[in-house]
Write a protein that binds this DNA or RNA. Structure first.
Lengths: 132, 132
DNA sequence: TTGCTCCTCACGTCACGTGAGGTGGC
DNA sequence: TTGCTCCTCACGTCACGTGAGGTGGC
């Protein structure tokens, strides 16, 4: 198995504030303000300098889109990012449940699975688990 | 069957702007501004006056909470209300899917339903639909 | 030393809320 | 007529972005 390169990990804090600001197209002071408002929390070195990850940069770009294109203020951005996480979580849960139900339907109606719908089982024999 | 009283319907537009503003604890001009920003859309009478429903009042109270307590601006409120609708929709979908799956499990394991988990069907006889 | 980092303070700009002012219809 | 409605305009306040200024460590 190949070893994962550490440099490729998007949560690895590798950028100093000047580089992060350049990558995001922002003023370094703006990044400090966003942190003060609780919008993101870059890591700190032992010398107390900020270190930003690739994920932090993505977060900065999202903030930029919300503030500049949509005109949302920072309190709004914070709430929106929280809600977006909730949406993502729920979407994953829906996918998981749909897959389980699809799976059940495949047992109930082998070869005729098109949608997850409740159907009467009366005339249908379940396919044994061991034959799957 | 009893007839539903029309006055009780929360989507019925019954309040003129001065009353709606009083109920929401706001200035009438503020309500007009919110409409201009697309945060809510009260009905209009044939004479072009606004008429607010109970649901509109609830929406106004939500806007008030987001702006005054959380400090969100109106662009943010708009986006947050859209995302909240998406969250509500997804939560309902999750409940629906969980119920369906629970139902399937009840068929597979009568009397032993605790969690929705995939289990082997090999040794279990399905409960006939007609007996439910 | 140079060029970064840290922080605080201040200022220009803009959004928001609200009041004034003038209009029109029940 | 009175009291509402409609609208636009203007002003005070505050948040946001950014620059200055002074500090400290690799």
């Amino acid at each position: 198995m190949a070893e994962r390169r550490e440099g490729a990990r998007p949560d690895r804090a590798v950028f100093v504030i000047s580089v992060a600001a350049e990558l995001a197209g922002m003023h370094p002071q703006t990044l400090r303000m966003y942190e003060r408002k609780g919008l993101l929390r870059p890591e700190r070195t032992s010398g107390n300098s900020r270190r930003y990850s690739e994920l932090d940069i993505e977060r900065l770009r999202l903030i930029q889109e919300l503030t500049q294109e949509a005109g949302v203020n920072l309190a709004g951005v914070k709430r929106i990012m929280e809600l977006q996480r909730e949406v993502d979580r729920l979407q994953a849960r829906v996918r998981e449940l749909e897959e389980r139900l699809q799976h059940r339907m495949a047992i109930a109606m082998p070869g005729r699975v098109e949608r997850t719908e409740i159907v009467p089982l009366r005339t249908l024999a379940p396919r044994p688990w061991s034959e799957r």
